[in-house]
Design a protein around this nucleic acid. Structure first.
Lengths: 100, 100
DNA sequence: ACTAAATATCGATATATATCGATATGTTTG
DNA sequence: CAAACATATCGATATATATCGATATTTAGT
């Protein structure tokens, strides 16, 4: 893990927003249809709807957040569900605390 | 204060390094000549020497770090001394902790 | 006032990021 | 297996960032 690489991912308002929305999926997103609950996260299309950006842009953002380990991706059928990687987020903050 | 604006400043290795070097100025920089100690920080030329980048680049970096309130600048004579703004750095980490 | 030194700003260029629409890939279902 | 759908990837373009050398500004000492 590298502070400035993660900071790059987090230097964009929409990506910070996505991480924030995923903190409370029940209130920020419509109920899931193809899975019983939010335990795997939220599908790309709902994040896209909320962001107002194009499908390709949001998919790209989620991919880079996933490469930085900030989110966990789960493919179920046609859908990919994304949720926060709380451990990584905590580790990142701890690293900042100790090294900044 | 805005998380992603500060993250932009901190999404560059050299700028993170500078903040780190300024944590222990005695061991990271030669003794100051025109001022008695490091209480106001380190002059631009010493930071430039350590970084290996051009004078204009380092001056630019320090200016943006200053605009983000991450460092405090003090002009004494021909020299500008930069030191960490510990309060701001703490506030930034706190904000990250509470909002990320 | 003139010169030299330290820093800041300007202008240029190369590289990176943001963002889109189009296309490809993978999955489900008729 | 063909069609439909969700997501991922590609290719393009506009904007931003990194970085330099050159120039301007500020200050100190003659």
């Amino acid at each position: 893990m590298n502070i400035f690489d993660i900071n790059k991912v987090l230097s964009n308002k929409v990506r910070i927003d996505i991480l924030d929305w995923l903190k409370d999926m029940q209130s920020n997103f419509p109920p899931q249809i193809n899975v019983p609950d939010f335990s795997n996260g939220v599908c790309v299309c709902h994040i896209q709807d909320k962001s107002g950006l194009s499908q390709s842009t949001i998919s790209h953002y989620l991919t880079m957040m996933h490469k930085a380990d900030l989110v966990i991706a789960t493919r179920i059928g046609k859908w990919t569900y994304y949720r926060r990687n709380e451990k990584m987020i905590k580790d990142y903050i701890k690293l900042l605390q100790s090294s900044l």
